[in-house]
């Protein structure tokens, strides 16, 4: 057992400061364990959101040494031992208290996306037929645990605060899961361009980097959606004519 120093943001509604703590750490411990231990030892009212502690529910999102992470999946052994572990709340959402932010905006955004709209069933018993290869592609997007770390790291939301104009990577993944769902027949391309603001994404891939589920957000979800938007909203005849003119 060794004692390690921590610096944890304490305060409410954005006002507050990093406070120093120290606690004993053991092999295999994750950051969330340390937070809980500090809570039980010396900071009974330290606010932190968590549930499954196994990287499956996406509740304990925060920033560890400045990087958006799940507290339950960040092992202390993987962090530099020569300086304190700094734990702060996510920055893209309104601060509530200590490590907790108000993520309700995400739920409102999701409600605005056209829901799943299936084609009529394939079989008389009301069921559909799909091949594994068809569902594989979408299953990648459906692995999303809604931790909102991709939203937190996205500069459009984090730095430019364009929450009104841009739904963020999480909901582009959600839209991609619906658009590429083998049974879905709704068309979301007009919404993607206007209401959902897909054009704001300039594919810096920060979201992909922080995704704890390893979803290739930019390459597999956002870029194909951008292509769909371009295909749908460009008149193909005029496009061809432009191409021909450029060549001559």
């Amino acid at each position: 057992m060794t004692t390690r120093p921590f610096r944890i943001f304490r305060g409410a509604s954005g006002a507050g400061a990093l406070r120093e703590y120290a606690t004993e750490v053991s092999e295999g411990m994750v950051v969330l364990d340390a937070v809980h231990q500090i809570q039980a030892e010396s900071a009974g009212d330290l606010a932190v959101r968590w549930n499954c502690k196994a990287g499956k529910c996406g509740s304990c999102s925060a920033e560890v040494n400045g990087v958006p992470r799940l507290l339950c999946m960040t092992r202390l052994e993987d962090l530099p031992a020569d300086r304190p572990v700094t734990i702060e709340p996510m920055r893209a959402f309104p601060h509530v208290r200590d490590l907790v932010t108000d993520v309700s905006w995400n739920y409102e955004v999701k409600r605005q996306i056209t829901p799943f709209t299936p084609r009529p069933p394939d079989a008389p018993d009301g069921t559909w037929r799909m091949q594994q290869s068809d569902v594989d592609r979408v299953q990648e997007f459906r692995k999303c645990i809604e931790c909102f770390l991709c939203q937190d790291t996205c500069h459009v939301l984090r730095d430019h605060r364009l929450h009104e104009a841009f739904v963020g990577p999480r909901f582009l993944v959600h839209a991609a899961a619906l658009e590429m769902h083998p049974l879905d027949v709704a068309d979301r391309t007009a919404d993607l361009r206007k209401a959902h603001g897909i054009g704001y994404c300039n594919i810096t891939k920060c979201c992909t980097t922080v995704c704890p589920e390893g979803i290739r957000i930019t390459d597999n979800a956002i870029i194909p959606l951008k292509e769909r938007v371009v295909d749908a909203l460009w008149d193909p005849v005029a496009g061809l004519a432009r191409l021909v003119r450029r060549r001559t």
Partner: peptide
């Protein structure tokens, strides 16, 4: 089956069923 009608995507058999 109702979950499938609401968008759930289960793994498939070779003939395309759940």
């Amino acid at each position: 089956r109702e979950l499938e009608a609401w968008g759930a995507l289960f793994d498939r058999t070779p003939d395309g069923r759940i």
